[in-house]
Design a protein around this nucleic acid. Sequence first.
DNA 1: CTCTTACCTTAGAACCATTATAAGCATATT
DNA 2: AATATGCTTATAATGGTTCTAAGGTAAGAG
Lengths: 139, 139
Amino acid sequence: MNEYIERYKDSGFKLTPQRLAILHFLEGNTDHPTAEDIFLAVKTNFPTISIATVYNTLQALKERGKVLELTIDPERKHYDPNTTPHHHVVCTECNEIGDIFEDYSETLQPPEYVLRRFRIAGNHVNFYGICKSCQDKKH
Amino acid sequence: MNEYIERYKDSGFKLTPQRLAILHFLEGNTDHPTAEDIFLAVKTNFPTISIATVYNTLQALKERGKVLELTIDPERKHYDPNTTPHHHVVCTECNEIGDIFEDYSETLQPPEYVLRRFRIAGNHVNFYGICKSCQDKKH
DNA sequence: CTCTTACCTTAGAACCATTATAAGCATATT
DNA sequence: AATATGCTTATAATGGTTCTAAGGTAAGAG
């Protein structure tokens, strides 16, 4: 837990028990949970937590660059504690999201007509497909 | 208008006046409109149209592969009548979306550990940046 | 032609993820 | 101990999207 104290002091981010529980759940999590996923998981150890606290905490983490909000699933937002540049693969059946750690930056150059209209800050690749368990479901 | 009759007969998609108005607005449109954008635009020529009809029509077009639903803007869905493979650039300030017609498919190969878990059907690149008019707004 | 059927449109209600509100709580500072 | 600040919470509000149910339309059957 000292890791957190180190990481968040000076950032005006109070490490309350609720926030520690959320941070602990997110630490190393590669499931790309939704706010509700986080809420339900933390609730088992911390039954009084409110969904509003989850959203508030995610907002604060987002502002501090500690978490990425993913707009990939058309139905809800997902959160990714891995803020290093990487990409994703999404199951078009169940919306499961997987990580892709591959550096495509060399080849992903936006064309001239885009550079004239936008100052580009980053990019992100999504692959779409069907995951194993959804393939199996279709007998 | 005969183009539409040709294009949609046999697909069980009735070409009502409302649908023709929506198709006409979408034809060649590169603005990536939201359902509300479409509703407001069509409403000027067709004041009785309902937003439900816009959503119903978009759903039907989506199912027939005539329109792509874009999950890029965290706030709302956008629709793209251009269904050929292409990519997008998004302004992180105003959510304006631009098209990128560049073929990255050669180099966008998902790694082995992804191919084992997903049957990949496609990919999509988003570039993030700030558009001209938002750059100017920050004086 | 009329009748039937299938599908479409519409207003409004419902839904649901997310955000806002306002009251109470906890902790650090004076 | 008093105060201030920021956090948590339940609940309400918001807003995009979907659902519902009633009526409309037009093509095909008789």
